[in-house]
Design a protein around this nucleic acid. Structure first.
Ligand SMILES: [Mn+2]
Ligand SMILES: [Mn+2]
Ligand SMILES: [Zn+2]
Ligand SMILES: [Zn+2]
Lengths: 145, 145
DNA sequence: CCAGTTTTTAGACAAAGTCCAGATCACGCG
DNA sequence: CGCGTGATCTGGACTTTGTCTAAAAACTGG
């Protein structure tokens, strides 16, 4: 529910702290990948990250990118967004928030949590505990009459 | 918001009417597939449908199953549920409703729309129109302390 | 420096889904 | 009926996303 400042590129030190603060060993590849993810508020696929990490000299393999994104998500540093059947998006914004998903363009936009209230959240079935709530508002481009 | 009766296996005639009522030519394969989908309230993957359709004599190819599920969804006869990055689920229940998704088991359960209120739905960005709202409550199995 | 552990990597592999071109089917008409 | 035509179906090749493996490389702490 807390407000989050607009994202801005992070210094090497800031990224390192981000990782260590989440119990993640800051290796060269992980720093590169985090740098890309946290450069700005955005929703990137694994392949997007792979391409961006490897477009200049520094490199990380496909396996490392997938492993790292999974690790970051498991450690709560980033969030997986499952909205498109063909690929997972990774979201540097872990504050509670929701999404518009444009099914025509594939564009994904944040909705601040305080702009949308959920009432009467039903309790999880016995034997299970809630892990998170995703609200996705699917939108399409207005038909040009 | 309307109540929906518990699902029960449909007669050949009922399935045919269901398809024609949605502007879908009732072919042998489409009837088979609809029969499987509407047999009861459930969430099936394309592969589930393929297996069920082909377990007894009657057959439909993989291409036909995928095409047909896509067609049914496009015509509003069934609903796609995107919740698991590895496969799409198809839902015969097109009444407005939401889902529990057990990330441990992969189980998907309905939540009646009137059990959960959404307030202040934000308006879609200009140039776009809302297409639907998905609410997914991710749950996991309670840790056995 | 060494030994042990963690991380990275190339490339093989798997699974879901799409595409294609030819075969089949459905249906209206003479 | 028997045709012609468009819609549908099909096997199988293909693509894309993601996983796995076993070996190389990099770190770590002593
Ligand atoms: Mn990807
Ligand atoms: Mn499937
Ligand atoms: Zn987001
Ligand atoms: Zn459902």
């Amino acid at each position: 529910m807390q407000k989050r400042p607009p994202r801005q590129p992070l210094s090497q030190q800031q990224v390192t702290d981000l990782l260590t603060g989440h119990d993640i060993q800051p290796t060269q590849q992980r720093l590169e990948i985090a740098q890309v993810l946290f450069a700005r508020d955005q929703h990137l696929s694994a392949d997007d990250v792979l391409k961006q990490v490897n477009q200049d000299t520094a490199r990380a393999s496909k396996a490392t990118v997938y492993n790292t994104l999974g690790l970051f998500a498991a450690k709560g540093l980033i969030r997986e967004v499952i909205v498109d059947p063909s690929r997972v998006f990774y979201d540097p914004n872990t504050c509670e928030h929701h999404h518009f998903y444009n099914v025509d363009t594939g564009e994904l936009m944040d909705i601040d949590a305080d702009r949308l209230a959920l009432m009467n959240l039903p309790a999880p079935p016995t034997g299970t505990v809630a892990d998170g709530v995703d609200v996705i508002i699917r939108i399409r481009n207005q038909a040009t009459a």
